[in-house]
Write a protein that binds this DNA or RNA. Structure first.
Lengths: 356, 356
DNA sequence: CAAGGGTTTGAAAACGTTTTCATGGAATTC
DNA sequence: GAATTCCATGAAAACGTTTTCAAACCCTTG
């Protein structure tokens, strides 16, 4: 008996279903049936074929299979950065969900300031993906109008599920968390704690998901007749948060300082906290801080960060479930809005109560 | 929204190279040549074919192409968790590098406590990946002996590049950072600052990369004749770091406390810092802390964390370069060891000097 | 024993490309 | 003007599966 290795080296070319068929004394069709566990193959034949398959450790070529079945068993996901903990968490859950159904997920990275071009979706089309998840929160509003055309073209080839608010002009499944509502909750909480001057640290109108947050912030501030402050910058890293905080505070006389900061996301809040420490401000007494996203590190900052739970894993999982169903043709377009919850921690006084 | 199936039915049949050929009045061979920009096609014909391709927005099916060319233009990467910032950074760089060469990278997730089984590598083989990156630091030593057999089988189908120390019995390209050396540097630095009692917070003999760190720690502690302490637990989350720190310190009379903690990685260090704050210890005066990995958040902890730079991006990029070359058949097995550098920040007194 | 039903099986045609090989024509050389 | 080379093109054979269709077989039943 030869070892697998010797067998293969002797063969000197890849083993195919034909080789197995010949050795087992059956037709390739029968081997195919055995490989995909189809019915209508007699136990005796099954055994014989199985034995040969095992002997050579034969694995069918899924590329050839895909060509015929018209499925690549591959999903795509479009996101700006896998090193961002939010997207990493979402992707991870989506991938796990897809894995159960025998699919793999490929990441198609689109830089924060890049547009979804025809050339970009061409990649997905050429790879003949079965479906695509679009985590489109990072799209810039100015690029929004050109999106429907590009994505409708993509949709001719594969179903799309977005993990962001609906894109006007594109009908598909949308799963997202209402961050404007989240921001309103944050404002209400701070107001209930007695804060009257609150600043929003995060770029203005930069990306859709940031725009949402900002809109919610202003709406609630206006509704409660509070004094809203903000910094008009492009902010999406801890270092930028550090600088923005410095700029905001040093630009105002101490008497006009806000007493609370709402930060666009927890990543940026890292830098904000650092700057506040550097300025020797006690948190939350001299300055309360609320973040957004509830990252893995948010419970471990000093002090622990009050933040909005957006449940990235849940997003990824649910969205992938819908995408899988869409690939099976069992889904009508719909939009699911999820509600973020405020996680109370010490950075704005965890012991006090949240507003109803 | 339409399912894959419905889309196809609408189109009534997918456009193929034959349709293009017919309309352009040439043979499929010529269309193929135009599509892959091969020489030997006259400008006139090229133009005519190109026009038809653009008219229908035709994209060749890369699955069919892959079948013939025997390349999937897909790499795999085996890692335990993409939400871990180290792996996310490594993957991201690897993917970018692969993208330049027209490859995509698929993540194959292997849980921390799982073994690389035959069934696991079967996935990679069936998908006919072109190559695989194994970030094998998370392998448990007790599973090390069974690895060569499984991976050698995999190697019959595709080249492997590891991003961990060589696996005994497996010859391939290995790229890794000498973390034992890094730990020795950390110990030397602390010793130079006057510390005599130092604890290592991280599991004992849990995974290979942790084992490496621990080994370096003990070696240098012994060499300098210092008092080494440790906790014997499975530690790989911030919350575990928090508990371990509490257990370590509350188990000792104050006079026997270490004056410095070396933590297995920055993620765990988050929890350690939190616990030290909770116990009202000033850092670094009452307790110095050194982490490992230099994550994006490490400069933003309170105080900023002294840590070892292991350059995950660099790892990912270089390893992928090697893998690409291996796929082109231009590589001999070799091992590249990289040296980590100590990043000095306030958590152990950034203003003081590192030992040479 | 013939008819009828069900189950197994194999031949052959896909799937959508790429690539090899041969051919005819144009361009170059002597 | 003939001989030679080179280039552009198409026919056809791959690539490794799955799937359809029909034939063959084995049991029942009348």
């Amino acid at each position: 008996m030869l070892s697998c290795r010797q067998v293969r080296e002797m063969a000197n070319e890849t083993l195919t279903i034909l080789d197995i068929a010949r050795e087992a004394g059956v037709s390739p069709a029968t081997v195919s049936r055995v490989l995909s566990d189809q019915p209508n193959v007699s136990p005796k034949t099954y055994e014989a074929v199985k034995r040969v398959i095992d002997k050579y450790d034969f694995k069918p070529n899924s590329i050839a299979r895909g060509l015929l079945r018209k499925h690549s068993y591959t999903m795509g996901i479009i996101l700006p950065s896998i090193t961002h903990p939010y997207y990493a968490a979402m992707f991870s859950a989506a991938q796990e969900e897809a894995g159960h159904a025998g699919y793999v997920v490929q990441i198609y990275r689109l830089a924060y300031n890049a547009r979804i071009t025809d050339a970009f979706v061409d990649q997905l089309i050429e790879r003949r993906l079965d479906g695509v998840l679009l985590s489109g929160g990072f799209v810039e509003p100015k690029d929004l109008s050109e999106l429907p055309a590009v994505l409708t073209r993509l949709q001719r080839y594969m179903p799309i599920v977005t993990v962001c608010p609906p894109i006007p002009g594109l009908t598909c499944v949308n799963i997202y968390t209402d961050l404007a509502l989240g921001m309103r909750k944050a404002v209400r909480h701070l107001a209930a704690l007695g804060h009257r001057r609150i600043a929003f640290i995060g770029a203005t109108d930069e990306t859709r998901s940031v725009g949402e947050r900002e809109r919610g912030f202003y709406e609630e501030m206006r509704a409660l007749d509070l004094a809203a402050l903000t910094v008009q910058e492009h902010i999406h890293t801890p270092a930028m948060g550090e600088m923005a905080t410095l700029r905001l505070l040093s630009g105002l006389p101490r008497g006009e300082w806000p007493t609370a900061l709402i930060v666009v996301n927890d990543l940026v809040a890292l830098g904000v906290l650092k700057q506040l420490h550097a300025m020797d401000l006690t948190i939350p007494d001299e300055m309360a801080v609320v973040g957004c996203d509830n990252q893995f590190f948010s419970a471990f900052t000093t002090p622990p960060l009050t933040t909005l739970e957006v449940n990235a894993e849940e997003h990824g999982r649910v969205a992938m479930q819908q995408l899988l169903r869409a690939c099976a043709g069992e889904v009508k377009p719909f939009t699911q809005v999820r509600e973020p919850t405020l996680i109370l921690r010490a950075s704005c006084g965890a012991d006090r109560h949240a507003p109803r």
